[in-house]
């Protein structure tokens, strides 16, 4: 690293203490956003090796599963919990087929490590089914927004997440907002209709 341009001494004005801890008059940083406030105990950082038992909260229930550090959330859902709605389509999440909600946000289960999902609320497409399916599911059915259906669960979760955030979305917003998922059969036109039907309460 001889070609590094960085200087070894801290620059003035942003001492670690003042900057981070926000103590003292000179460091009155205003929190514009705080995402979490996890408790910190005195023990050092935990390092996990090999397969261990972890607890995940899936569709409102705590479940014990076995996971290695390299086990993805998608593998746990599909191989241990028989929740096969989220699909393994791409290694890198670029198809959106493995979309699940983690703390209400749409993310790819295929690129989420199971261990990184502990302590969070995980919701899968299966939670949108049941006797009274979610409005999005019903709209997908009545607007025929599926063909082979392999991408459909990921799309349903994505549309649910999108509409949670944009309940009054316009057609232009729908077309701009749902590009994280791929459908090979080409059901997009009907997905637009389905999403707009949910907005209108049809």
């Amino acid at each position: 690293m001889t070609d590094s341009k960085q200087k070894s001494a801290p620059k003035s004005g942003f001492s670690r203490r003042a900057f981070l801890r926000g103590s003292g008059a000179a460091a009155a940083a205003t929190a514009l956003h705080t995402q979490t406030a996890a408790a910190v105990d005195d023990q050092g950082p935990k390092v996990v090796r090999g397969e261990t038992s972890i607890t995940l909260n899936v569709n409102g229930k705590d479940v014990q599963v076995k996971a290695e550090p390299r086990t993805t959330l998608l593998d746990v859902l599909r191989y241990q919990l028989e929740l096969t709605g989220a699909k393994p389509v791409s290694l890198d999440g670029s198809s959106g087929a493995s979309t699940v909600l983690i703390d209400d946000k749409p993310v790819a289960a295929s690129t989420t490590l199971a261990m990184a999902a502990t302590g969070k609320q995980i919701r899968t497409v299966e939670s949108l089914g049941g006797e009274q399916p979610d409005d999005v599911v019903q709209a997908f059915v009545s607007h025929d927004a599926q063909q082979c259906g392999f991408c459909t669960p990921g799309f349903v979760v994505a549309v649910r997440a999108f509409l949670n955030k944009n309940p009054d979305a316009t057609e232009a917003e729908v077309r701009a907002g749902l590009n994280g998922n791929i459908c090979r059969c080409g059901t997009y036109a009907n997905i637009v209709e389905a999403a707009l039907a949910v907005v209108k309460g049809d």
């Binding site: 709605g85 989220a86 497409v125 599911v137 997908f140 927004a145 599926q146 669960p153």
Partner: peptide, 9 residues
């Protein structure tokens, strides 16, 4: 089969 396809079933 619209519903089973749309719910992961």
């Amino acid at each position: 089969d619209g519903t089973v396809k749309s719910t992961g079933a």
